[in-house]
């Protein structure tokens, strides 16, 4: 079968499936309504965890194990990209933008860093959390790679030291999860006796969600920075 025929066949199959779904969407009771599970999360979420942001409470308390899985996926991706680019080196000379761009980026980079740290720390109070803040922190590295040129940035930021920070953050995440195991509870439990709850709405509340946010944020920032610093490497001129 030629490619055009495969494309047309897949369009027809897809249209048939999705139209049959759309015609029966009223019977699909959870589309546009609450589950029993989500009703429980909405009504009891603040009392159970002490976090005001229900999505962060689901991600780090009720479903903390899935977040650990995602952190491990990012770690594996950073390791794989480091291995793929191990035989290359960073370019020795690279162009940089004009004096206006360089001066302006030195002015707004501290603001972006403070904003990223704010989003990480206030993850349980307002929309945000570990992942969003970590990617914002790593975008500062991307801005500096564009504005100052690759050779200048690589001279100051070695990806091996960032890999050490990344590994330590993942170990911190697992360590915070192992503390309840020492007292006989499950992994990653948010115990009120070990991690105090506080009043919902304050900064120091919600048990171990704040600590897990900080660990995840630094881990994601370091992972994305390692990925970026590896992908700019070029082949040596006298290789095949």
């Amino acid at each position: 079968m030629s490619k055009t025929r495969i494309a047309l066949l897949s369009i027809i199959v897809l249209v048939v499936i999705i139209f049959s779904f759309m015609l029966n969407v009223k019977d699909f009771a959870y589309y546009g309504n609450h589950n029993e599970t989500s009703l429980y999360y909405v009504t009891e979420g603040v009392n159970d965890t002490g976090a005001v942001n229900i999505v962060t409470a689901i991600l780090f308390d009720y479903r903390g194990f899935d977040t650990l899985g995602e952190a491990i996926v990012l770690f594996c991706v950073a390791s794989a990209i480091s291995m793929l680019f191990a035989s290359r080196t960073a370019p020795k000379k690279s162009a940089e933008l004009s004096i206006l761009a360089r001066a302006a980026s030195l002015l707004y980079s501290p603001c972006i860093i403070i904003f990223g740290v704010y989003i990480i720390i206030h993850g349980h109070l307002s929309p945000g959390g570990g992942f969003q803040g970590g990617v914002i922190l790593a975008s500062v590295v991307l801005i500096h790679l564009v504005v100052f040129g690759e050779s200048t940035v690589v001279r100051h930021l070695d990806y091996k030291k960032l890999a050490v920070i990344e590994s330590f953050s993942l170990l911190l995440f697992i360590g915070i999860g192992l503390i309840p195991v020492l007292t006989g509870n499950a992994f990653l439990t948010n115990l009120p006796s070990l991690f105090p709850r506080g009043i919902p709405g304050e900064l120091f509340s919600a048990g171990n969600i704040g600590l897990l946010n900080i660990a995840t944020g630094s881990k994601v920032a370091a992972s994305v920075a390692v990925i970026l610093l590896n992908m700019i490497k070029r082949v040596e001129e006298d290789e095949i």
């Binding site: 942001n53 999505v55 962060t56 989003i119 929309p127 945000g128 959390g129 992942f131 969003q132 990617v135 914002i136 790593a138 975008s139 991307l142 994305v224 970026l228």
Partner: peptide
Amino acid sequence: DVAVAEASVGAGLTTG
């Protein structure tokens, strides 16, 4: 939450 994640990841990281 999803909007902040998509803004930082999709428009910032993937394009870069």
